[in-house]
Amino acid sequence: MEEERVREAPLGWLAGGLLLGLAQIVAIALSGPLGVSTQFVVADTQLLEATNPAYVASHPLIGTPKYTELGAGWWLVVGLAVGAGLAALATKRWRVATTHVWWRANHGNSVGKRLAVAFAGGFLILLGARFAHGCTSGQFASAWAQLAVSAIPFTVALFGAAMLTARLVYPRTPRLEG
């Protein structure tokens, strides 16, 4: 049986990068730079408001309208999910998956282990993003577009930690297409 390979992206690097850059330009022209991670706190705030409104009102961070109200940033994340889903359908790449090629090359078809790592990783991703005042959208792509000083320590810490971790979790390289 032929060894499976990592698939090419639908668009080449230049076209893909230009399309993302266009999204950033439209965002900065119409409302504000791209950002995603704040909305996870907004989602939690909505749940807390339904169950424990007194806690929300007394909280120094989430008691403010930025978190209690659903604004442009919230609808951006809803649009993001719809846009990605439509793009996956349009390119005939929508399919249910639990693991990816790099995972299978290093850990076989261990679905349970992948889901546990996915949950723990997601936890660290958002906890870290809020400490850092933004994620790869807001504190990296958007911070560099604005030439914010905050982009420099973020870039160093993010890619340093991510490259080291990926080396430990995915030591074996699968076959790559192209």
């Binding site: 660290l124 991703i125 870290g128 400490f131 790869t136 340093g160 991510a162 080291l164 971790t165 080396r167």
Partner: peptide, 8 residues
């Protein structure tokens, strides 16, 4: 922290 999660 975000980098560790992204690397995982």
């Amino acid at each position: 922290l975000l980098g560790v999660g992204m690397g995982m």
